[in-house]
């Protein structure tokens, strides 16, 4: 792979705005989100519930329900704006070029069809293989994702599999058409940690083998640290920080990111008392004016309450949307000094 091709993103999301028109008002679920995904990398998207992670991924695949509307923006995949494609063109992308796996595999798997039928359906649709060939490929895929006795399991129904096995089956289905991008929305949140470890390892190994890019959506900073190359931190429908994974954890440049990192008890560090970000996640119908984090931010000033901070590059490759990074930096310095003392 040349340096140049590494620099061409395979997917570009530009200023995406997705709103829901509900009875209670307009939910600005995603409000001006931009990012790129490069070939073979894993982009992590992290944030608390309701910050717009799932809506972002559903927008990419144009899978929103009737209340949801993409207001503006572009989603450029291999030079084409997905938002301008017809529904039939989009169907060729979905599952074939860009595949998705969900938190709860039962919502994506059809309970009345066998695992094999569901994997084969995608293979036959996108690759034009015969039924026998498709079945063989389905069995191969199940074996590849570590399902024991795949010849037998291929004829089982989703409810006959454990949670971990179902997630494996869904990965098999997603990868059967060799997509360039796999969107994984909280793929391990519903699983036990020992099973989560298996699935994460499987995803890493398959990524090496297939070379696909992964968009890894999670609320778990541990999973982010383990899986991602670059990270997008979202808060209340916006990207607040964007950096390489090492840089993000080493030099967090947004108060929200820093607060999140301090809020998790870690196995390797002993705390007297946990840090807690004050207040609650704002309701999507009433996001605060100015910086949306100002109601919970210890560095907030009047400027934050009235003017929205833009997402700007604050050091090479590191983007943050905050008016007072200097204040954060001195707080981080004090904290680190305390820790090393």
């Amino acid at each position: 792979m040349s340096v140049l091709s590494e620099k061409t993103p395979i997917l570009q999301v530009k200023d995406l705005r997705t709103y829901f028109y509900t009875e209670d008002g307009v939910v600005k679920a995603v409000d001006g989100v931009s990012f790129e995904v490069y070939e073979g990398e894993t982009l992590g998207i992290v944030g608390e519930s309701g910050c717009g992670k799932s809506v972002t991924s559903l927008s990419i695949l144009r899978l929103l329900d009737e209340k949801g509307r993409i207001e503006s923006g572009e989603i450029i995949y291999k030079g084409k704006n997905l938002l301008e494609l017809s529904e039939s063109e989009m169907r060729k992308i979905r599952g074939n070029e860009i595949a998705m796996i969900f938190q709860e595999p039962m919502t994506a798997l059809n309970p009345v069809y066998t695992i094999g039928d569901q994997i084969m359906e995608a293979i036959i649709l996108h690759q034009g293989l015969s039924k026998d060939e498709a079945r063989k490929l389905a069995i191969d895929m199940l074996r590849k994702v570590g399902i024991p006795e795949p010849e037998k399991r291929v004829d089982e129904y989703p409810h006959e599999l454990s949670g971990g096995m179902r997630q494996r089956a869904m990965i098999a289905m997603a990868l059967s058409c060799n997509p360039s991008i796999l969107i994984a929305d909280e793929p391990t949140t519903a699983l036990d940690v020992t099973i989560q470890a298996q699935i994460l390892e499987l995803m890493q190994q398959l990524q090496k083998e297939y070379g696909m890019s992964i968009i890894m959506i999670t609320h778990d900073l541990g999973v982010i640290a383990e899986m991602s190359d670059r990270v997008l931190v979202m808060y209340a429908g916006k990207v607040v920080e964007h950096a390489s994974v090492r840089e993000l954890f080493k030099n967090p440049k947004h108060p929200y990111t820093w607060g999140l990192m301090n809020s998790i008890p870690r196995l390797d560090i002993e705390y007297e008392r946990l840090y807690a970000i004050p207040g609650t996640v704002p309701d999507a119908l009433h996001f605060p004016e100015g910086c949306r984090f100002h109601t919970r931010c210890e560095f907030a000033t009047d400027k934050c309450r009235s003017e929205e901070p833009p997402l700007v590059e604050v050091s090479p490759g590191h983007l943050s949307a905050c008016w007072h990074i200097d204040r954060l930096e001195s707080a981080v310095a004090v904290q680190r000094k305390g820790e090393s003392a």
């Binding site: 020992t194 989560q196 390892e201 640290a225 383990e226 090492r246 954890f249 080493k250 990192m261 390797d268």
Partner: peptide, 18 residues
């Protein structure tokens, strides 16, 4: 214990995968 992802990309640990 070894299955829990640690929120620190510098932290490399050996992992037992059951």
């Amino acid at each position: 214990m070894s299955a829990i992802p640690i929120p620190d990309p510098e932290h490399k640990k050996k992992r037992v995968i059951l």
